[in-house]
């Protein structure tokens, strides 16, 4: 099976007649969870990721007393794949959450200063990534879902030491849209948006997050390596895909 897939990919064929640098169909829905301050359900092919956003009153970080906090975590639910096991966060889910967190933070996607309430009180924004079905490329799906959910997040009101979460109309201030593109290297071939099957035979993975102008986060994964020309090629494609992905987010958040 693996050899067959490798052979297909090295002869330039992918399932569903997909080109090497094409995404599968991407669907984005926002506001799917009413109890959360913001949420989004994103599918890329059969991969499906749900992100819920909650805001709580917290203390600021000592080195940033006038900014809110961003806390990103990811759950690879056992219901999402026979390969996911229950238990505490494993290196894979920690890596996923940290890469999404880096992209959001580096791109200054949220206006962190707008989360200041009063001295020693700020909003903490919790981005919880829940993988519902795994078929590859969790990085791009998770960042798309996080970005979409944040854009539709309504900020609770803090009044008389209480948090009011109902009948809100002020949106969280989002300054910048960042998206990522993830590539897999199988043998010597680079492909965009790998499926679960393709990820099971990839030797290396490369994720680039960009905001249209700047590279905002990079994460290379697995044992395989990349040549500099391959990196250049992936960076180029990542910037080319930006508008396409941004448009999907914008349409889902109108």
């Amino acid at each position: 099976m693996n050899d067959y897939l490798k052979e297909l990919i090295s002869s330039g064929l992918r399932s569903h007649d997909r080109g090497n640098f094409d995404y599968r169909e991407i669907k984005i829905k926002s506001d799917v969870i009413k109890t959360a301050e913001g949420s989004a359900d994103v599918s890329i092919g059969d991969t499906r990721v749900l992100v819920g956003i909650k805001l709580d009153v917290d203390e600021p970080m000592p080195d940033k007393p006038d900014e809110g906090n961003l806390i990103t975590s990811a759950e690879l639910l056992p219901l999402a794949s026979p390969d996911f096991e229950p238990g505490p966060p494993n290196p894979e889910s920690i890596e996923l959450a940290r890469v999404v967190d880096r992209a959001l933070r580096s791109a200054e996607a949220i206006d962190m200063k707008s989360l200041f309430i009063e001295e020693n009180k700020v909003w903490s924004v919790f981005v919880d990534i829940y993988v519902l079905n795994y078929d590859g490329n969790l990085f791009d799906a998770s960042l798309l879902a996080a970005m979409t959910a944040l854009m539709k997040t309504k900020k609770p009101i803090y009044k008389d030491n209480k948090v009011i979460r109902e009948n809100l109309n002020e949106y969280l201030k989002v300054n910048n849209i960042v998206v990522s593109t993830t590539f897999a290297k199988i043998g010597d071939i680079l492909i965009l948006d790998p499926t679960g099957e393709e990820e099971s035979i990839m030797n290396a993975r490369y994720t680039i997050a960009n905001d249209g102008n700047n590279i905002r986060a990079i994460q290379k994964g697995l044992y395989g390596s990349f040549k500099e020309e391959e990196i250049d090629n992936m960076v180029e494609i990542s910037f080319k895909k930006y508008n396409e992905l941004k448009l999907l987010i914008e349409n889902a958040t109108k």
Binding site: S106, Y206, N214, I215, R216, A217, K220, S225, F226
Partner: peptide, 15 residues
């Protein structure tokens, strides 16, 4: 062979 084995990045860089 100058193969890249690890690469991570945060912040902002133009190409």
């Amino acid at each position: 062979n100058n193969e890249i084995l690890l690469m991570q990045m945060d912040g902002g860089l133009t190409r």
